[in-house]
Design a protein around this nucleic acid. Sequence first.
DNA 1: CAGAATCGTAATAGCCAGAGTTACGTTTCA
DNA 2: TGAAACGTAACTCTGGCTATTACGATTCTG
Lengths: 157, 157
Amino acid sequence: MSKDSRLARMAHVLVHMAFNDGAATSDTIARMLNTNPVVVRRTMAGLRDRGYVASEKGPRGGWRLTRPLENLTLLDVHQALETASVFTIGPSDGHVACAVERMANRAITGALNRASAALEAALGQVRLSDILAEGQALRAAMDQGRPHQCPNAVAAQ
Amino acid sequence: MSKDSRLARMAHVLVHMAFNDGAATSDTIARMLNTNPVVVRRTMAGLRDRGYVASEKGPRGGWRLTRPLENLTLLDVHQALETASVFTIGPSDGHVACAVERMANRAITGALNRASAALEAALGQVRLSDILAEGQALRAAMDQGRPHQCPNAVAAQ
DNA sequence: CAGAATCGTAATAGCCAGAGTTACGTTTCA
DNA sequence: TGAAACGTAACTCTGGCTATTACGATTCTG
């Protein structure tokens, strides 16, 4: 696995959770994501801290959405994950003594900032409910009343 | 060093090279970048392949720009470096059986594509000559006729 | 022609953050 | 009381850039 797929994973899981009656346990979610419960708890922690989900311990415990999918955007989720940096590239490091180097860094940082703003704008436009709204396969699943079933989880049971 | 700083490094070095009379050796460039000549050759290879710089072996050899800074943008340099991926984040991996997951991935990929386009647009707008054009420290250096001197290199000599 | 100057490149090791695991502690319910 | 769940620390593994070492191939100069 080469990239940070937390945003994708959380978007996926949160949509399922919206159609889950009870709380979803870390174990159940882990099966949807083909991973293990510790990774799930670690990743959900940021969402919990922002109040997007709530966790309950003990039997019948697990994770619940605290708001409808319409009130949560990909940007909200992304920011909750507190990704160190969205870019693999960046300015040169350290104490820059060279004026040319400083200017080059500034130019690159400016470009990255614009790209970052574009990314946030794009993510902010996507409500999690939009993910469901698109796609024929999803419509079909909704028509059958089971958009909460993740085949990954089912297969692993 | 946490990030891929090759673009910043190359932008820095190419500007200096434009004011260098002879060829710049990998060793000289390495001093400007606080690294060693092998890293320089490895990084310059992409630029050489695209014809932005030419290398000559043997005594008096080294690297030369093949065109003025006005005809080279940060985007040109960036593309020459063939960065694996500009983003640390991405869609979830593997054979996605879940329709919700596919839709989530699609939404995220769409946002990343827009950000990527914004980045390329921003990088494409910056000619390497623009890096010199801005900044008072650089103007001062140019007035004194030595914008080719990199303090990093000088300090290490 | 000898020898030094340079580039070209393979092979290694280090670093960093996310991912995957194991281990253990805490809370909660029946 | 004991099982179900979350919380979290501590490792290991992985991929890409970086740093180094080691050699080989060219090319100029005396």
